[in-house]
Nucleic acid binder design. Structure first.
Lengths: 244, 244
DNA sequence: GTCAAAAGCTGACGATTAGTCAATAGGTGG
DNA sequence: CCACCTATTGACTAATCGTCAGCTTTTGAC
């Protein structure tokens, strides 16, 4: 067969795309329900009612499924960040809005934490194909760019003055690290509650405000109720039902 | 046998303890050289010149080896933190000294990052025994306590004033998250260099100073060269040869 | 409608590796 | 020297990833 009806092709292609979605859906459920070690190719095959060989036509190996899951979630996060960054208001308030987006993201995509944690293990990462990696990294870059743009705006309008020799990217690195670390600790530390951190989210917001106050980014937290703002933003822009 | 010569027993026990050390040593090498997926019980057995069954008399399963490795490293970190906390000087300078210890720790125990990353994956953590976990968590708690004590000192002498409703533990949570996140990103992100963070350690220090300035912890970074201080502390207290 | 070729799908199989345990070696007290 | 006990072994089981020869379905020319 040298050519095929394009309509037939697109039907087949649609079927294949739908099956790929189904594989990811099933993999996500298995991850949430039995963790990384519970993710099993034979079980996925049984669940989607195709053979194991068919799964390997979509994903070169198990790790690629994880990267694909991560990419799916990160694509949504990018949309959320962009929506947050487009919020009308002072630059620091827009940054807080992105913070609210990040909070909403981890709440809504609970499985993403598990996936990213595993994917970042280098010996797992190295088993994936450059194409899949590139998709995921591209999301990461775009998320960065979105937030860095806010800092640039702040510098441009004078609400933030960076010390000589420092760049907007460093502030974003700080925010990124703070969120990444806080979420890792909140999800995996067994000593947090014991020592008096009852509400890690609240403490994260508090520290976020300390950092940005430390940068002198106006309005300072004394002059604006960022806590209140983040609560209403989560209600208004990032309710669960808006991202189901 | 109801009793044995204690000298014979202790010789045997010593042999066993030495073998356990050898297992961990070999496991660490394999981890560093071929990553998590390269860690292999048969290879460890071949390397230490005992059979696989003997390894399982020391460790219930593979994961316990990882937790034991993590605990070993964390015990050293605790010593480093205590040494740092004992530094004579203003409380905030002591906190910066702990930061220098944390930097030196990751540089010297490069394998620890790999281990901790894997151990924190919940489906792996759950395969380990409560006893092993408790040892590791106890180190974590003691590290926390050491740093929280510095914050208490700061509050006591008035160089730090916490807003009403906030506790010293929250500041430590922020520092912990910042370091944890920055190290995770520095080790695993492939987009950092592209976006202009050439020196993550320097950026981490910069952000650490922003947080603590944000808390108003004196002396502020404008009044003390913390960067310089951390460099000399790493040279004086935490040179590589002091922890080999 | 028929048929040959292409594409899609399958699940038994090979390979790897964690963990077990019956058999064996080695040491100890009498 | 023997009876007994502990330490060690490595062949074996089980789980599971990834492969591929062969089977089934679809396609499109006639």
């Amino acid at each position: 067969m040298s050519t095929t009806l394009s309509s037939a092709d697109s039907r087949k292609q649609r079927e294949i795309r739908e099956r790929e979605g189904r594989i990811l859906e099933v993999a996500r459920q298995q991850l949430l329900c039995s963790g990384y070690l519970g993710l099993n190719m034979d079980r996925i095959a049984a669940e989607i009612e195709y053979s194991k060989g068919t799964i390997y036509q979509h994903f070169r190996n198990k790790e690629e499924i994880l990267v694909a899951l991560a990419t799916q979630a990160l694509e949504t996060r990018l949309l959320m960040f962009r929506k947050a960054a487009a919020f009308e208001g002072p630059s620091r308030v827009r940054m807080a809005t992105v913070g609210a987006a990040a909070e909403a993201f981890v709440e809504h995509f609970a499985h993403h934490f598990l996936v990213e944690q595993v994917v970042r293990v280098s010996s797992i990462w190295e088993k994936t194909s450059p194409d899949r990696r590139e998709l995921m990294e591209s999301c990461e870059r775009d998320c960065m760019a979105t937030t860095v743009a806010i800092v640039h705006d702040a510098v441009a309008d004078g609400s933030l003055v960076l010390p000589a020799g420092h760049v907007p990217e460093e502030l974003i690195f700080g925010m990124w690290a703070l969120y990444q670390g806080a979420q890792t600790i909140a999800h995996t530390s067994h000593t947090l509650a014991e020592i008096g951190i009852a509400d890690p989210i609240a403490s994260l917001r508090f520290n976020q405000n300390r950092v940005l106050d430390g940068y002198g980014w106006r309005p300072l937290s004394a002059d604006f109720d960022y806590y209140q703002h983040m609560n209403s933003i989560k209600q208004e822009l990032f309710r669960h039902d808006q991202f189901a």
